[in-house]
Nucleic acid binder design. Sequence first.
RNA 1: GCGGACGUGGCGGAAUUGGCAGACGCGCCGGACUUAGGAUCCGUUGCCUUCGGGCGUGAGGGUUCGACCCCCUCCGUCCGCACCA
Length: 823
Amino acid sequence: MEKYNPQEIEKKWQEVWNAPDYYKTTEDSTRPKYYALEMFPYPSGNLHMGHVRNYSIGDVVARYRMMAGYNVLHPMGFDAFGMPAENAAIAHGVKPGDWTFANIKNMTAQQKAMGLAYDWDREVETCREDYYRWTQWLFELFYKRGLAYKKEASVNWCDTCGTVLANEQVIDGKCWRCDSEVHKKNLAQWFFKITDYADELLADLDKLTGWPSRVKIMQENWIGRSEGLEIYLDAPELGEKISVYTTRPDTAFGITFLALAPEHPLVEKICAISDKADEIKKFCEHARSQSDIERTSSESEKEGIFTGVYCINPFNGNKVQIWVTNYVVFEYGTGAVMGVPSGDQRDWMFAKKYGLDIILTLQPKDKELKLEEMDAAYVEHEGVMVNSGKFTGMDFNTGFQAIMDYAEQQGFGKRKVNYRLRDWLISRQRYWGAPIPVIYCDKCGEVLVPEKDLPVLLPDDVEFKQGALSPLSTSKKFNECTCPKCGGHAHRETDTMDTFICSSWYYMRYTDPHNEAKPFDRDKVNYWSPVDQYIGGIEHAILHLLYSRFFTKVLRDAGLLDYDEPFANLLTQGMVIKDGAKMSKSLGNVVSPEEIINKYGADTARLFILFAAPVERDLDWSDKGVQGSYRFLNRVWRILEIFDDAIKAGNDTYDAQILTAEEISLRRTLHKTIKKVTEDVRDRFAFNTAISSLMELVNAMHTFQDKKINPNLARELAKNLLLMLAPFVPHISAELWSKFFMGDVHKQNFPTFDAAAIVEEEIEIVIQINGKVRDHVKVPVGLSKADLEKFALTLPRFDEFTSGKKVIKIIAVPNKLINIVVK
RNA sequence: GCGGACGUGGCGGAAUUGGCAGACGCGCCGGACUUAGGAUCCGUUGCCUUCGGGCGUGAGGGUUCGACCCCCUCCGUCCGCACCA
């Protein structure tokens, strides 16, 4: 047999797998379905190790399920709209589409060089007309359902990207993509009403038993549900009632000031009657010029200005100063906050800074608080109410409810649920995205592009000027149009959609990718969905995963599909790091997948990446470790070469009774390995331990390298080893299989273990004295607790172990140990 | 500040239900083969040791016959959220 030559055999098998029908998938009611999915990539041009890890994991899952008898959907595609294509256009004058498709071509070649089992016929590219046509169609569906609206708002603006961003896409005050500072701008923008689904998005997290709790907690925090009371405070000078929202209605008697956000509409009204109008306006300008970070970081200084206007606390009739402050967030609650310095640390600090009154409303039970001695607010949710009129004396829980009841009875308050989640800002002032299919008519106003006219195509006569508003507005043929309703003069919306919209439904399109009449067929999407195993990075814990859940629920309500959640199980893989840091060009620690594959082959790359760490954890890249994986594949090759004659001489059915003791033991190792690998792959995604047990098996086979081996056993070993290796290292498995066996290794059934082969007659148990291991003895398997206790007394070294001491008791655990407790 | 995860040999990691800590791999050391070895094969490898054993899973305490695993306190690393009223 020739030497293991990965370059040669990998090319050979990839050609087989790339045949158009090889991995073609169709619905099949006779087998259970399994939808395995890796997050589709942005076509940056080259695969990086993170992709290799992602696809290696997904491929093991998919190939294992295929061999285990499932009808597996395993597709791949590209999240192909996005900024880098546009930047390439600005920098090098290439067309975004040309740049994108060239990158896709390159990356597809690299994916194929990994030997991945994809149904390429289902490939989806979100920048293609036959895809974004349906993205636009879905936008219209949202619009018709009242879930898409345009409004002027203070929004996040990234100068570098020249566009607005959704809240989810601002990380620590910085742009998620380019890391530059984001600031606020007032613009009329399109939003998706994700807040309508806040409650369900939160509640259904409980259904996601196959998701890491980490991700669910992050989404829970992001949605940020809270229950409280809205209170209306009369402001006689303004002739208005001011609404505030609080989660601490029990402290309402302690209100000593009211804080408005600078953006609050009442501020203007106040300025109209206040003699401090100039100062107030100046303060508001100052606050608005601050970044979100400056305004909302818990470290930054709280600032405010008294307006000179008052309102009335409806609970006790107290006159309350109205302030404008920089720390109240306009978008949350009512944009106005009641100030209770005794019960809220921020209010405490604010009151201390500006010398405002403080009224204590809650006393802890164990010690008495005195205002003069306090240096912080009392924020605990327990104690007895004080200074609270008829509520004085009630304990926290009773008073909390009683105050809300009272406010509702009196009509100056209402129980309210609030969310931190904001609506999803989906317009982008960029070119390379799906145009928002809306027309503005001089007479009819906002009009949807009729379905028959979709897609609204991207024009090619645009100018890319960084920083300029919407490149689409520079296109002559795009901008001007006629109104679909009245035929009059109109112009088009020139913003495009957030690319996260494209990626919110691609996994549905995979189930019916060529449909020209609708985004996907309902029966097909229902057959395949939900995704049984979704695999990707933790960076999408909120973003893509929250948006996709939202989309699924909207499309369900619209009757397009019949399930609640898109991804039944989620696996968040760790990063690939080197020298203690994430691989990055600037650190110069990047290892190119192409290089590794050229040098050692895809099988080695896949094996190493699956073996080196558990999938959820970060993986330390090690060149030496890669060599170790390469060495292992050579060992597999070599041992089958050594067994060559035996394997070919053996039969598939034989009587295992005739084996020697050593052979029986080797066969036992084989079947234990089958059990272990099956459980590790199927139940735990513990590919590292699955591979380590395969290594143990190969090591055990090597003990026969100089010995005669029963040909039937050699055959059984080779067959099952290759079947188990097939999902991990498909090329070498296919090659070796073809040398010894008929058919296609990947179309065989994954092996099942022979329970009889695993049974051992004797087992070694541990003898402990006071919990310390002192000896090992062999006993028959299954010896009962009672028999084991009796057996303990007959141990040859029993007297030695217990001499001079008193035996207190004997603990026996069948098949495990005997522990003799002495004193 | 709040929430979460993690902490095991020189390194990556294993120990799935409270029952032999360190599987497997890397590295190191030794041996075989060899003109040669950076190929391959075999073996050793937690620390200490008077060779009986002692110690050992971030630190300290607890529960238990028995704890990497459960409980308490603390330290460290990483991640998420962070004036959301």
